[in-house]
Amino acid sequence: MFSYLVRRVLYAVPILLGVILITFVLSFVVQSPEARARAVLGQRATPQAVATWLSNRGFDKPRFFNTQPGEAWHDSQFFHHVVKLATFDLGVSDVSGRDLKEVFKQGAVPSLLLTVPAFFVGLLMAVCLALYQVFVRDSLLDTAGVLIAVALMSIPSMVYIVFGQAVLALLFNYFPVFGFDMAGFGTLRFLLLPVALMALMGVGGDVRLYRAVFLEEIAQDYVRTAQAKGVPQARLLFVHVLKNGMISLITLVVAHLPHLVMGSLLVENFFGIPGLGNTLFLAIQQSDYATVFASVYLGSLLYIVGLILTDICYALADPRIRLS
């Protein structure tokens, strides 16, 4: 198990290097460093100011390999970039000049406060509803459930947000429309509506997926064995079928993981939650390339962590799988 994990972490290195290489090349395709310096410093910046900006960020060095005589071959933009990212030095924002590590640290908390409850509430709802649909399979209730699930997943997320804000917040005044406050229980006030909406947005698609997984399980031989033992339906579904279905669910669930930390662009933006989604949204709007590329790197890092976690969860859920 341990040696397997070490190997998986080592496998992650080339993948991350690939991500870094691609985003590195892309960053020059999108905009040359000089143009970026001008965009940040303003059109009337002096050539000296531009040169200082470039050399502060190492843009005066050769791009990939340093072929200058007397200098080390790795004294180049790319290798400095890799070393910085490997030591979690994400650089500074092009716009605000703030250390990005701090920016992300600060944004992660509101993002997690939003996405983690939404994720768990959504997961719980989807699993319970899917199991219930399997319980009443082939009935009118099941068909109605499928229809509602399709409807829920067909409604664009914007509609959920606008409905929540216009009707529940503005018209009935149940919730604040916009804003955030890190003040203990006061935070809850701002989180309830966006969390509920986020959970609801995903539930339709998830119910359909999970229902398909559970329907496949209910046709298995072990289900008949359990019935022949006299196991009650509820226990059959929530113990026997759920544990077997977990193995398929894990892949579907872990796909959400990077999304958890990176937050939700739309929901955070509309509700004024200063999380990572909002940070990325603003960065894109303001052409803050440093922040955008750091976000991409962070996202892929989290995705790889998610994949490793999936394998560990597989081994925990299914005794037939051994990590080696």
């Binding site: 072990y222 019935q227 006299g230 005794p319």
Partner: peptide, 26 residues
């Protein structure tokens, strides 16, 4: 009543033991 007789009065052994036992429980 059916649940009460299943297993208690009439118990079953099926054809394919490898799939008839639940794979994720001891």
């Amino acid at each position: 009543e059916l649940r009460e007789i299943r297993g208690r009065r009439i118990a079953y052994v099926f054809q394919e033991p490898s799939t008839s036992l639940n794979p994720v429980f001891t």
